[in-house]
Structure formats: structure tokens, C-alpha cells
Amino acid sequence: MPHDPTDRRVVVTGPPRRTRPLNRYRPRTEIDEQTTLGHTYVRSLMRSQLRAALTVFAVLILLVGPLPLVFTVMGDSSSLEWIVLGFCIYPPLVLLARWYVRRADRNEKDFVRLVEDR
């Protein structure tokens, strides 16, 4: 595409150049070019996302795991079982999901801010 050469020069040599060094460090480039450092960035994002996922998973196991045992130990627990399994267990599942989505979105936004250096 034909460009006006003067326009270009203005963009590239504008004021930012004076305030920031030429070889300004940009994590984004590391990721784009798939250097070892770039992979380290990606892994840090994966770790934070996995941590969020495992947290939710652990809460889920703690919430659900003991229930069959409790029902068995309690013996005459069928009305409790109806109430818990028929109704009470669903709202926590949705709340957990919402918490996770918020956390995962925030992790990604933070990461973008980090690598874009904004």
C-alpha cells in the first residue's frame, strides 16, 4: 500500500522515542517469537489458571465428597438427602462457577497488561 513517506517518519521518530530506549524490553515480543523467556511467561499464565481451577476443584471435592459417607453414617437420613441433593447443592455449584470465571478472566487481563506493558 502506498504511504506518504512524511507521515511514516512522524510516527516512528515521534516523542516516545526520546523518553523510551530503542531496545525497550517487551514481553509480548518474547511470546510472539517463542523464545524460552516467552514460554516462561505462558507457563506463568497456565500456572495461575491451573491454581484457580484446582482451588475450585478442591472446594467441590470437600463439598461433595463427604456427603455419601455422612448419609450412610447418619442412617435415617433420607429427608436430609432429599433436601441436600434435590435442592441445596445446586446454588453452590453455580456460585463456584461464577467465582472461577471472574478469577480466570482477571488472570487473563492481568497477564495481557503485563506483557503489553500497559
Partner: peptide, 19 residues
């Protein structure tokens, strides 16, 4: 009521899928 674990599992499966 033991069989209520079926719908609970069908729902919680989506939570595991999500995370």
C-alpha cells in the same frame, strides 16, 4: 433419594468441564 446423585453429577460435570 440415593439416585438424586445422577442429576447432581450431570450438573457438577459442567463445573469440572468449565474449570
Amino acid at each position: 433419594p440415593d439416585m438424586l446423585w445422577y442429576p447432581v453429577g450431570y450438573t457438577a460435570g459442567y463445573l469440572v468441564l468449565l474449570i
